[in-house]
Design a protein around this nucleic acid. Structure first.
Lengths: 195, 195
DNA sequence: GTACCAGGCTTAGAAAATCTCAGTCTCTTT
DNA sequence: AAAGAGACTGAGATTTTCTAAGCCTGGTAC
């Protein structure tokens, strides 16, 4: 079971160009120059050995093959898009679930961050745990630990809450370390005074 | 209607690794090193913000998300593969349809190349025409013309049949110029004596 | 317990793919 | 006839991806 199909960049360029019937418009949508789209489509056509567009001075026209190809490509893109959105909703607007080490709970103001208004848009759930496994399982997005871990491949960020010399460690999967949500939480934590 | 999904290379690496539950085996299938697969998958995970695999010393395990993602990705790959094969059967083993310029017909041995045994596996159909449009429409894969064209973006290859000083021009879409079939035809033509 | 093996990870640098830019061409519009 | 729109090309810059070599961990054989 090994799949063979042309490069995705080429297909993306084809799909956009076919929708607009214009390399220029497709380029604008994809955020590149028209030359790039032109080259991608040409590479795709070469790899398939057929022409997908008729190039007329007044614009583009799909060939019979191009017209036959487009709906399937769009459908495949739909599947990819839907599947991706299902397993990993866009990071923007995604609320994180946070784990709180029992040892950390005592060092924070009562109810923080559960009752923090500013963090409300970024947090979906708070659990008390220090189980790093939960992060690898995607059951938890981040963990506030009292101690360092030696799990090198997790992202680890030390924060000292205001007026406190003992750091707290903010642990996430690498992919989440730099997102808006993580930064907001770390910043809020840094400016929080211990009780 | 603009689609958003992660890089195809990453998805390919994920799909293969998930099938084998091994980066090494996936790498062998994809013809790259295990490090490359590891990097692709990591990039994919970062772009999604979730983990797809548990890395255990004894191998890989899919996370819940990874397991949920895999079937959809495979399905999308199926769609791409089928659609591609439908519009452009693999160049290997594909027979070309050739157009013969009426002016060329008289300069070739009677029935050539229709009756050429060696070209039989490469030619599907022969028509007498000099209409270049047919090439752009994919109705014709190649054209043997008596004269040069000035269609710069078509591939043009001059051949002088044995003992003949007047060249014949072999015209194809760029994507077909270098394939086995084209080369076989050009070579056969070059060694063919005029009648 | 120690050596060895397998498989995954990391990093730097090499290699390849892709993009931009500037200029050209063709056809359409004024 | 001149100007405009849109596509093409080639060179060079940029970005992405790959390889190579060495590290780390856990399992297995002695």
């Amino acid at each position: 079971m090994t799949y063979r199909f042309p490069s995705l960049n080429g297909l993306k360029a084809f799909e956009a160009a076919a929708r607009h019937l214009s390399f220029k418009a497709a380029a604008a949508e994809l955020g590149v120059t028209a030359g790039a789209v032109s080259q991608q489509v040409k590479r795709l056509e070469m790899s398939l050995g057929i022409s997908l567009f008729r190039r007329l001075p007044q614009g583009l026209l799909l060939t019979r093959e191009g017209a036959a190809y487009l709906p399937d490509i769009s459908r495949a893109f739909d599947v990819l898009t839907d599947a991706t959105e299902a397993v990993a909703p866009a990071l923007n607007g995604r609320k994180l679930s946070i784990g709180l080490d029992p040892l950390v709970v005592g060092r924070l103001p009562n109810g923080w961050p559960r009752h923090s208004i500013e963090l409300e848009p970024y947090i979906r759930e708070i659990r008390v745990t220090d189980d790093i496994e939960l992060i690898w399982n995607n059951e938890l997005d981040a963990l506030l630990l009292a101690r360092q871990t030696r799990h090198g491949s997790l992202s680890e960020h030390a924060v000292c809450p205001n007026g406190n010399s003992e750091p707290i460690y903010f642990i996430t999967r690498p992919g989440l370390a730099e997102c808006r949500q993580s930064r907001a939480i770390v910043e809020a934590l840094a400016s929080e005074s211990a009780e």
